[in-house]
Simulated assay, not measured.
Amino acid sequence: MREAALARRSASKVTDAAPDDATIIGLLAAAERVPDHAALRPWRVIALRGAARSRLGAALAEASGLSGDAAAKLAAKPERAPLLLAIVATITAHPKVPEWEQDAAAAGVAHLLNLLLDDAGWGVMWRTGPYTRHPLVADMHGLGPNEHLLGWLYVGGVPEPTRVPRATRPLTPNFSSFD
């Protein structure tokens, strides 16, 4: 797992190949092993393929209020990958599990799924943006009142099969230790 984490890189460009639903479900079975206080499973993953990506693009453009070329450019963004996995936090009122902890569990699923997809040889990039939480975008995904979008994993084939391990950075800037 350490090697997979060190080798993981975001793929800003991918090919038209994409994993099928059975592959995604199999990887989710592993990704869903994240810490989950009270076993609430406060996440949902929605696969967007084909025309669903165009509907998302239209929702993003409408949410932005842009027009002309700027709106068209924004609407085309979901077409960058053949598969988008929308990561949704599904919040349940619970006396011991606050909303932020449920968001963290859903984000953990997204991160682990990202890592698993990358390790399986797929190109992946987690994308968000200013309209991720816009009501029009939520409506496009069919989100309920207790749900909010955390972002999308853009998934596709890797154009170049060679991988260069990521250079490790020293931990000191973001690590503290107390006695």
Rank of each mutant, 00 (worst) to 15 (best):
T162G: 14
W152T: 13
D139A: 15
G157N: 04
G129T: 01
L149H: 09
V137C: 04
P130L: 06
V124W: 09
P159K: 01
T168Q: 15
T128M: 12
T128S: 14
E147V: 08
H141S: 00
P145M: 02
R169C: 07
L153F: 10
V137A: 00
L153K: 10
L171F: 12
V137D: 00
G129P: 04
V158E: 07
N174R: 15
G142A: 07
E160H: 13
V158F: 02
P165S: 10
G142N: 04
G151K: 00
G121E: 01
R133K: 12
T168F: 10
H141Y: 02
L143N: 03
D118Q: 04
M125K: 13
G123Y: 00
Y154C: 08
G157Y: 08
W126T: 06
L150H: 13
G142M: 07
L117D: 09
L117I: 01
P173R: 03
V155P: 05
H148P: 11
M140E: 14
R127A: 08
A120P: 08
A167C: 09
W122M: 08
R169V: 11
L153Y: 07
G129E: 07
L143R: 00
H141M: 02
L143F: 03
P145N: 05
L143A: 05
A120E: 12
V158D: 09
Y154I: 07
G144I: 08
P165M: 11
P159F: 07
W122Q: 12
L153G: 15
T172Y: 00
